[in-house]
């Protein structure tokens, strides 16, 4: 079994060479790893490599092919790149610019204020939506001069993380 896996920006070829219960031999690009890998809890793995004990957590992301992996010191975005996701990526290429036109929040919260209306001209750095979570208000600003095309939420709405709040043009 061979797959391409992306960790942050790096893309690697990963190949399973052999597997005997916990004893796993894997090739990552040209490096061979003999690891003893054991799932100890939901999303939590104990990995022994060269006698060193590591705890690595892999949490499934938005799709089954995306993970957030946490080692003791760092956190990574990991994506399994197979034929299907490559196809999806190619298809979505044209839509990439679309994301630059949306304002979204990285955390769940509640919309406190929307100081803009549709068709309003805004200049770079202007606040278009204020979201509050855990007693802290965060202002979301536009990064360039733009026109407000659509406001997807209203004041008082509870929003999920990465939900689109405002679309600009």
């Amino acid at each position: 079994m061979e797959l391409e896996i992306k960790i942050n920006q790096r893309l690697s070829k990963v190949k399973l060479i052999s597997r005997n219960n916990n004893q796993i031999r894997v090739k990552v690009d040209d490096r061979i790893y003999d690891v003893d890998l054991c799932k100890v809890e939901e999303s939590e793995y104990s990995v022994i490599y060269n006698g060193q004990s590591h705890n690595i957590e892999v949490i499934e992301g938005e799709t089954s092919k995306r993970y957030i992996a946490n080692t003791y010191f760092k956190s990574f975005d990991i994506e399994i790149v197979d034929a299907e996701s490559r196809y999806q990526q190619n298809r979505n290429k044209g839509a990439l610019d679309q994301t630059a036109n949306t304002i979204s929040t990285p955390m769940p919260g509640k919309v406190v204020r929307i100081p803009v209306v549709v068709n309003q001209k805004v200049s770079a750095g202007e606040t278009v939506v204020v979201v509050s979570a855990m007693k802290m208000e965060s202002e979301y600003k536009v990064s360039r001069d733009a026109v407000i095309k659509k406001v997807m939420v209203k004041e008082g709405d509870t929003v999920k993380s990465h939900q689109t709040l405002v679309i600009i043009e």
Binding site: I5, S12, Y33, V35, Y49, V58, K65, T71, I80
Partner: peptide, 16 residues
């Protein structure tokens, strides 16, 4: 790199 690779290997096995 080694520490990154171990994260990759873990995600790989979980996916398999």
């Amino acid at each position: 790199v080694e520490c990154e690779d171990l994260a990759v290997v873990t995600a790989f096995v979980d996916y398999l």
